[in-house]
Amino acid sequence: METKNDKTIAALTHLSALSQYLIPLGNFIFPIIIWSSKKEKSELIDFHGKQIINFQLSLLVYSLICILIAVPAFSTAIFSSMDLPEIINRHEFFLNHIDWAANNIALTIGIISIVIFFIFKIIEVFLIIIAAINASNGEKYQYPLTINFIK
């Protein structure tokens, strides 16, 4: 039987991931600290701790994929119209020397990747709040599109 304290701690485990907007890596540090210190005392806290950590790790993987797509796409768009000696010897770099029309595909891929990244960040906030509400009610909540790193 879950106590009110267990439900509150489970909810706080989810909400602690929002600390990433104030403290770098807070979305990993605080949930791990709360989960590891309380996981033996409550099955509910153990379940929710695993869920938020798996969700944050999954978002990290998805974010890295978006970055690994966006950086080469933008780099290709910016540097494809310049020769290597021109890049090295040029002391000034102007974006108006780029042939934007010839690089539409690379730019589109890069922009779509960045947009997907920001959509993930917006959805993340809402899903964390939903999970915290479910945890405070003593219900088990599983995040969508989550890779189970910790079982």
Rank of each mutant, 00 (worst) to 15 (best):
K39R: 14
K39M: 13
K39W: 10
K39Y: 06
E40A: 14
K41G: 11
S42D: 14
S42R: 12
S42T: 11
E43P: 07
E43D: 14
E43Q: 15
I45M: 06
I45R: 04
D46V: 00
D46N: 13
D46L: 07
F47L: 13
F47C: 10
H48I: 06
H48S: 11
H48D: 11
G49K: 05
G49C: 13
Q51V: 11
Q51L: 10
I52H: 02
I53L: 15
N54G: 10
F55Q: 12
Q56K: 04
L57D: 05
L57P: 08
L57K: 11
L57V: 07
S58T: 10
S58E: 07
L59E: 03
L59N: 13
L59G: 10
L59P: 00
L60W: 10
L60R: 13
L60D: 08
V61S: 14
V61I: 15
Y62D: 00
Y62M: 06
Y62I: 05
S63C: 11
L64N: 04
L64F: 10
L64D: 02
I65A: 14
C66I: 08
C66W: 01
C66E: 07
C66Q: 06
I67S: 12
L68P: 02
L68F: 11
L68V: 10
I69L: 08
I69P: 01
I69F: 04
I69H: 04
I69V: 14
I69S: 04
I69T: 05
V71C: 07
V71M: 04
V71Y: 13
P72S: 09
P72R: 06
P72Y: 09
P72W: 08
P72G: 10
A73T: 01
F74T: 04
F74I: 01
F74Y: 13
F74H: 06
F74N: 02
S75W: 05
S75V: 04
T76E: 14
T76A: 14
A77M: 08
A77Q: 01
I78Q: 00
F79W: 12
F79V: 07
F79A: 08
S80G: 01
S80W: 00
M82C: 00
M82Q: 07
M82P: 00
D83S: 14
D83P: 02
D83T: 07
D83F: 00
P85G: 06
P85K: 13
P85C: 11
E86W: 09
E86S: 15
E86D: 14
I87Y: 04
I87F: 08
I87P: 01
I87D: 03
N89R: 12
N89C: 05
N89L: 07
R90D: 14
R90S: 15
R90V: 00
